[in-house]
């Protein structure tokens, strides 16, 4: 489904702020894989997701989605394959547009924006039903501006928007990091449900080791812009946080202690 081949990216090359963010990331996702992505600060987790999403062009390497090389496609063209939820709840939705309008925009992801009506009657019923599955009471507030909603509600809507039109790959970039623990749990539960019901292929970046272990069928760890650990199936199911810390330590060498706090 997704193939990342030896991808490199350096930010601000040749300056004092030079940052080699990706140093040969390679990764293959099978259809239906739900991969959690962990790693310390600056390991390249979000950068990898952004490279896949096409936020900027990579320096070298290739990204294939369903066999199509998308490396040369700008972000808005790649969007036809991708559903995305961001860390900041403000990023995924348009605050001054209604829930209905936001959903309608997402429903047309990857399609030509024509002069047909932006929201049809039939869609309203669809959005109503989809929102009802979130159990947040949002289905009765279709015309409310998204800006009036809480961060958790906005993330839940963004999640729904990302999957309204089945994506080939769902990219979740620490989408619960900005939420309080209770809300984060709810949004994670909704994530599991949506991914399971739609048999989506997904990548979820997280800072939380427990979340990384308890969700998905596969776990990868990034360090210094490379994939250093890749665990799936039974091995992942039996994983514990101490295991993971040990693996991390082995993979990343000695300069590790500062990262431990961030990963707990």
């Amino acid at each position: 489904m997704l193939e990342v081949r030896n991808v490199f990216k350096t930010f601000n090359p040749g300056t004092i702020n030079e940052k080699r963010a990706l140093c040969g990331v390679s990764l293959t996702l099978k259809d239906g894989d739900f991969v959690t992505v962990i790693g310390g600060n600056g390991a390249g987790k979000s950068t990898t997701l952004n490279a896949i999403a096409g936020v900027w062009p990579v320096d070298a390497g290739a990204i294939l989605i369903d066999g199509v090389d998308v490396s040369g496609m700008p972000e808005h063209q790649r969007a036809q394959f991708l559903g995305r939820v961001f860390q900041d709840p403000m990023t995924g939705t348009a605050a001054n547009m209604s829930i209905l309008e936001n959903m309608a925009l997402a429903y047309r992801r990857g399609q030509r924006r024509t002069l047909r009506w932006g929201v049809t009657k039939a869609e309203k019923a669809l959005y109503h039903d989809k929102l009802a599955t979130l159990n947040l009471g949002l289905e009765d507030r279709l015309t409310a501006k998204v800006g009036l909603l809480s961060g958790g509600q906005r993330q839940a809507i963004t999640l729904l928007m990302a999957t309204l039109r089945q994506p080939k790959l769902l990219l979740l970039d620490e989408h619960t990091a900005a939420l309080d623990p209770k809300t984060a749990e709810k949004v994670l539960a909704a994530t599991d449900k949506i991914i399971g019901e739609n048999h989506l292929t997904a990548m979820m970046v997280t800072h939380n080791m427990r979340d990384a272990i308890h969700h998905g069928n596969r776990l990868i760890m990034l360090h210094d812009g490379r994939v250093v650990v890749d665990i799936e199936g039974e091995a992942k199911k039996n994983l514990t946080v101490p295991d993971l810390l040990a693996q991390f330590e082995r993979a990343s060498g000695s300069e590790f202690s500062s990262d431990r706090a961030l990963l707990s």
Binding site: Q77, L82, F86, T91, T93, G110, R113, L115, G118, V119
Partner: peptide, 28 residues
């Protein structure tokens, strides 16, 4: 009429949130 169409909505989305618009496949 126009700002109620798919294209007009895409323009409003572009004005409202660039990152979201790009993620929804809008050529901003």
């Amino acid at each position: 009429w126009y700002f109620g169409t798919e294209q007009g909505s895409a323009i409003r989305a572009t004005g409202a949130n660039l990152a979201m618009s790009k993620a929804q496949g809008i050529n901003i």
